[in-house]
Design a protein around this nucleic acid. Structure first.
Lengths: 324, 324
DNA sequence: CTGAAAGCGCTTACAG
DNA sequence: CTGAAAGCGCTTACAG
């Protein structure tokens, strides 16, 4: 910028005015400055600008894994809202590791992002306290932030499982199994709770072998599926998330008899597989979380909120078959 | 930092040393500084650090759409390599719009990213010349950069189509149709070229109605599928990308008779649908592009390269059926 | 082992 | 309409 000023024979401030389209510069001066800019290949350094101005016009997004279709739809919605607010987006995956989540969050904060959208992997978010006190806005999505006051945007997880179970009950099932993710994950625990409550309300005692929580790798899921659908086993299986559903679909055809199926979370081609699902709205969740974040950044002060986004049941055949 | 220095009764430089874990500070002094840091809730401002140091330890990634599973696997690989190189990742979607690609790229450059990985939407990348001259490393992936010298990492697109067509020929098909994406997209054009060459080599003249290029929305694809598989139409259809494949799978069951199918690019559940594919390696592409970028940033000077990543055919039944 | 001075590339607040 | 000075929060190069 100094070079441009020298070349155009003007002061620094005049170059700044031209670069930022501020008023109060003669057409002739503007032209001379513009010429110098092109000749020298000048590009404004936004880092320097940011250092002086305060707000960085960037936000950070911490996901579990961009590879999961739920999170990619979520991310796209966040990105769109960020663009509407003239903000750039840092992104990172925690891979379900608390220390990686924290490392990413603090790295983003060190770059002075204005705000953070976090899909929590960890269970203690007090490490963000100094950041929020310094003015960084934080919104947790999909799972709530823990040991910290903040805004949360969640799906109606327990309610969704309840809906799914009641749907299976209406189609005559009573021995209903549940395959879920690791139980320390909030969504996994909530969905299991909804299942248990709906079963209890129907007066059905859940046998120990009917519930299997654990990592969502295909082998574990297939083994648990086989175990719970054996002789006198369950006639229907509730899949706790889209990873479980996919693994179950891959394994179900090798079972002696096919159980009724319902999955939590919709995904591409679930329709072709005829899988009935309790559908979440990942784009809606991303949009809601991002709008809330920019609301806070715009100075909205009210109490912290927890939003539960509704889910809805999509029947496609797999859950509407009677018990064998 | 000034406040910390004052509180600890030391100089600025000493605080800097402690914050960065540089040697040459007494344990006692370190302790006093650390105490001041916690008491004041000090957080180093990396923007300021970056301004002084030069390199920003961040790269930008411009995708067509994070929602597409090909690009989400790609992104995850880029992110992993970035982390290995202690670099943060800006991400943005062009939505196949050249102006949005440019806007994102220049915004990232204004933040002084060290490098850029671009999946091009536009067809003229001369706008990046001032940036590359200023030292920004750029790698194009999936599609080549145009009107600019740079590194490219691509799939063997034409070769892949050729493999797919030859596979169908081996199973007795001669009337083979092709449904692809908009022809101005490089991958779409290359894959079509491979198809045409393989057909010509087999001595088959491609009838005008056998090729349909256009947007990948389900309605367009379904209409073209119906049109080309009518009376005396094609007996096999080559799907030019995973968007086309999904739309074809959704529409194919309503046809009077089911054509043989093969798709370019693998995707989740293609196995359940029994779809034979020419598989790309999105994670490998992301990894290769990112490694190349950091190689350049580490000072590697050689000529610009264009890498063609191999693809491989996965038979799953849909392409191995003879003509009706 | 420690610190004062200068500077990274901008903008702010002010004066002319 | 224009510009000189100070400062954003750090690091570099140097001196003690």
């Amino acid at each position: 910028m100094k070079d441009v000023a020298a070349r155009a024979g003007v002061g620094l401030k005049t170059v700044s005015r031209v670069v930022n389209g501020e008023p109060g510069v003669t057409a002739e001066t503007t032209e001379r400055v513009q010429a110098a800019i092109t000749e020298l290949g000048f590009r404004r350094n936004d880092s320097a600008r940011i250092l002086r101005k305060g707000r960085t016009a960037s936000i950070g997004l911490i996901l579990e894994d961009i590879g999961d279709p739920f999170y990619s739809a979520f991310s796209r919605a966040v990105e769109d809202v960020a663009r509407d607010n003239a903000s750039l987006l840092f992104i990172g995956s925690s891979a379900e590791a608390a220390d990686r989540e924290q490392e990413l969050a603090l790295a983003f904060c060190a770059r002075r992002v204005d705000g953070l959208i976090v899909i929590p992997a960890g269970t203690d978010h007090r490490y963000l306290l100094p950041e929020t006190q310094a003015g960084v806005a934080v919104v947790f999505a999909d799972r709530p932030g823990q040991r910290i006051d903040a805004d949360n945007v969640l799906s109606a997880n327990a309610d969704g499982s309840r809906q799914g179970v009641e749907h299976l009950l209406r189609h005559g099932h009573r021995r209903i199994g549940y395959i879920g993710d690791l139980p320390h994950i909030h969504t996994a625990a909530e969905r299991l709770r909804g299942y248990r409550e709906a079963m209890a309300d129907a007066g059905i005692e859940v046998a120990p072998g009917w519930v299997a929580m654990g990592p969502t790798d295909p082998e574990r899921v297939a083994a648990d599926l086989r175990a719970m659908t054996g002789e006198d086993g369950v006639t229907a299986v509730f899949c706790g998330n889209n990873r479980v559903s996919v693994s179950v679909l891959r394994a179900v055809d090798s079972l002696p008899s096919r159980p009724a199926l319902i999955g939590f979370d919709d995904f591409e081609l679930a329709d072709l597989a005829g899988l009935s699902v309790v559908a979440q709205d990942p784009a809606g969740m991303g949009r809601t979380a991002a709008r809330l974040l920019f609301h806070r950044l715009a100075g909205s002060a009210g109490d912290f909120t927890t939003t539960h986004l509704p889910v809805h049941l999509i029947p496609r055949g797999s859950a509407e078959r009677p018990p064998r």
